[in-house]
């Protein structure tokens, strides 16, 4: 990822900021200039809560460049509770434990690094919602 695209996408990657169309109220992620539902200009930022569920998933064994060291890993379509469907890596979970409908939450993790000298790219991944132990 170049410095410019790294900078341009920082709010969506780090804080899950998309848009809500001011004309038809469609919930958009990632943010875009034109609403795909009503084709009006979409410029209203919306901060997603980061809670969702696994819509579908696949286990990746042959990974693209800069992701080889994660393989095997799970990529999922995650349905946010506000509506949008997005693609993200699942983390802190064994592939055999993933199922359709699994409740997940957003975490910010390392996505990739441009070698030992380049930028480190951070962004959203999803993990199973952690269990809570009993109150003390």
């Amino acid at each position: 990822m170049s410095s410019s695209s790294h900078w341009r996408t920082r709010r969506q990657r780090l804080a899950l900021v998309g848009e809500q169309c001011p004309h038809c109220q469609a919930m958009l992620f990632p943010p875009r200039d034109i609403c795909p539902s009503c084709h009006g200009p979409a410029k209203e930022p919306y901060h997603y809560g980061g809670v969702g569920s696994v819509y579908s998933f696949s286990e990746v064994y042959t990974a693209p460049d800069a992701y080889e060291h994660y393989a095997p890993y799970v990529v999922a379509l995650v349905q946010l509770e506000e509506g949008p469907l997005l693609t993200a890596q699942l983390t802190d979970v064994e592939p055999e434990d993933v199922y359709v409908g699994m409740p997940v939450e957003m975490v910010t993790r390392r996505l990739r690094a441009e070698g030992p000298e380049g930028l480190i790219s951070y962004g959203y991944k999803f993990r199973p919602v952690p269990e809570r132990v009993a109150a003390h």
Binding site: H69, T91, V107, R110, L111, I120
Partner: peptide, 9 residues
């Protein structure tokens, strides 16, 4: 830390 964790995350 896991593979995708560091002081930032």
């Amino acid at each position: 830390p896991g593979l995708d964790e560091d002081t930032v995350t």
